[in-house]
Nucleic acid binder design. Sequence first.
DNA 1: ACCCAGTCTGGAACGACGTTCCAGACATGT
DNA 2: ACATGTCTGGAACGTCGTTCCAGACTGGGT
Lengths: 226, 226
Amino acid sequence: MASDKALSRDRIVDTAIAMLDAAGESGLTFRALSARLKTGPGAIYWHVANKGELLAAATDTVVTRAMAADPAAATPPDEIRAIALGVFDAFDAHPWIGDQLSQLSAQPTTLRVFESLGRRVQSLGVPPEDQFNAASALLNYILGVAAQNAALARSVARGTDRTEVLAAVDALFAGVETGDFPFLRSVATQLRTHDDRDQFLAGINLILAGIVSLNEGTSRRSPAVS
Amino acid sequence: MASDKALSRDRIVDTAIAMLDAAGESGLTFRALSARLKTGPGAIYWHVANKGELLAAATDTVVTRAMAADPAAATPPDEIRAIALGVFDAFDAHPWIGDQLSQLSAQPTTLRVFESLGRRVQSLGVPPEDQFNAASALLNYILGVAAQNAALARSVARGTDRTEVLAAVDALFAGVETGDFPFLRSVATQLRTHDDRDQFLAGINLILAGIVSLNEGTSRRSPAVS
DNA sequence: ACCCAGTCTGGAACGACGTTCCAGACATGT
DNA sequence: ACATGTCTGGAACGTCGTTCCAGACTGGGT
């Protein structure tokens, strides 16, 4: 059978990804992983230093695959949108990487996304001294959405007891209606009907518009002021 | 002495905050908390349902205090900047809330920040159908920075063994210089010398510029198209 | 043929955690 | 005096990440 193959780091990471997809971060246990690989915890620890490294390897694998499909769109803004949506869709398929990416900053995985965004920011004609801030804003926004979606997915997936989730949503809307949340009440319909992916893209477009807007503003006055 | 006072939920939450500030999320243990309050775990569980609720209560307390100082600045953009910086500074003082806020979405705490941002977005003259997306973009960006800073603070605070952190930073820069990261290399000096707070504010300004830019664009053509 | 060093396995055990249980202390109303 | 509900805190349970170690397998040197 397939599990007769030798134990290897790749095989461990792959089954870890499968378990994470199936049951979230709390579903990945060295004991459960051992059972599924028909071995003991000690054997796994010979290939992997600890759980953190295992999660990092799983995240890296998934994100690398997601960014491998490089669409190479027409314009730099389109490319940035494509990168952002690629990462977003990876979050959607594997909600657990949202936690990982926002917990291990300055990791190779995050670094690659940052690099990829930064190159397009350069192509956008942003002055060098603003490139770092622009790329960071994009990355931080993407990671923020990632973590938020991960949290949502976790509370929904926990739902063998779905009533718990429904109760939380009811409490949320009750709080919105009883407390003084005029803004939230005014956008309640959008809160209920909005599409996460569209909203994510709208945020990206907002930041992109801000980048070109500030860029035009400075270049109109002077190419490199202050 | 002070600890002779009766055990109450407030006293539990306050000492929990103190322990979280001192040693991060992993420093808060029901056993350590019991020892510090000179009681047993069972006594704490009579006042608090579980650790999640305790963390939520601690986060809510800290964020509420941070937003209580409402500067009521002159213009809506200034107010948004003030709110964002207030939350950012709260993160800086209590890095552990970064994890909390991004893990418990749709919580009253997050909801209050969202409401507060949304009102200023309304004052900005954003058309109703775009208000939700604009406020969400701001919130997601803020939460993204929060989680990122929390991760950084965690890896630094872990540092009884500071060499570990330095080794990680070295490995990071080594990776930047050996791998093909042309963009990262070009902004390396900013990476080393940038101020987190300034960069955070720059991102907020980028989103604000995008909001007004897109707003002008649509209103120039037609007040409410599509 | 033998052996030995290195690679790799997996079961047992450790310590710490969140959480539950429960016997009893304390105050209060009758 | 007694019964009741509030509140305490120590003991214990189950699970987790992790460590330890005795032994199986493999390949190269004699």
